[in-house]
Amino acid sequence: MKIWGLKACDTCRKANKAIAAQGVELESIDVRADGVATDDLNRFYDAFGEALVNRRSTTWRGLSEDERAGDPIELLREHPTLMKRPVIEHQGTLYLGWGADVQAAILD
């Protein structure tokens, strides 16, 4: 299982902890430190569309109107912390966030 998030993100830490408690081998990718591959960004955007961009983040509020109107993939490449997180890949399926629906789908 892979999880893309931030080390400092409380939600990402909760997800990591709960998944690790299940004894699942987990590969964690810190989007700030490690970045996100363009192929992965494209897959995520194909799966989640505009929901992938966190418009409530501090990073989003700091962008100009011109930047906000730009290509979402390019925006996420330049500002990986704009990505809503975590993004979890489990058994070939992508999940966004750590809501009850995601937890039910991946935790046994």
Rank of each mutant, 00 (worst) to 15 (best):
M1L: 08
K2T: 00
K2H: 11
I3H: 00
W4R: 04
K7N: 15
A8Y: 06
D10I: 02
T11E: 02
C12T: 15
K14Q: 12
K14I: 02
A15Q: 07
N16L: 15
N16D: 01
K17L: 06
K17N: 10
A18I: 06
I19H: 00
I19K: 00
A21G: 10
A21I: 02
A21Y: 03
Q22T: 13
G23E: 07
E25V: 14
E25L: 09
E27F: 03
E27C: 05
S28Q: 10
S28T: 13
D30G: 08
V31K: 05
V31N: 03
V31H: 08
R32G: 01
R32P: 01
A33L: 13
A33W: 02
V36D: 01
V36W: 09
V36L: 05
A37D: 15
A37V: 01
T38W: 08
D39P: 01
D40A: 14
L41M: 11
L41C: 04
L41P: 00
Y45G: 07
Y45A: 05
Y45W: 13
A47G: 01
A47D: 03
F48C: 09
F48P: 09
F48R: 12
E50F: 09
V53M: 04
V53D: 09
V53S: 04
N54M: 09
R55L: 04
R55V: 14
R56G: 12
R56N: 11
S57C: 10
S57W: 10
T58N: 12
L63H: 07
L63N: 08
L63R: 08
L63A: 09
E67R: 13
E67Q: 15
E67G: 06
R68P: 05
R68A: 08
A69R: 14
G70Q: 13
D71W: 12
P72H: 03
E74T: 15
E74M: 04
L76E: 11
L76Q: 08
L76W: 06
E78H: 14
H79S: 04
H79A: 03
H79K: 15
P80C: 04
M83D: 12
P86Q: 01
V87F: 09
I88A: 02
I88S: 01
E89D: 07
E89H: 03
H90G: 00
Q91F: 00
T93I: 13
L94W: 13
Y95M: 00
Y95A: 00
Y95F: 15
L96Q: 09
D101Q: 14
Q103L: 03
I106F: 00
I106M: 04
L107M: 07
D108I: 06
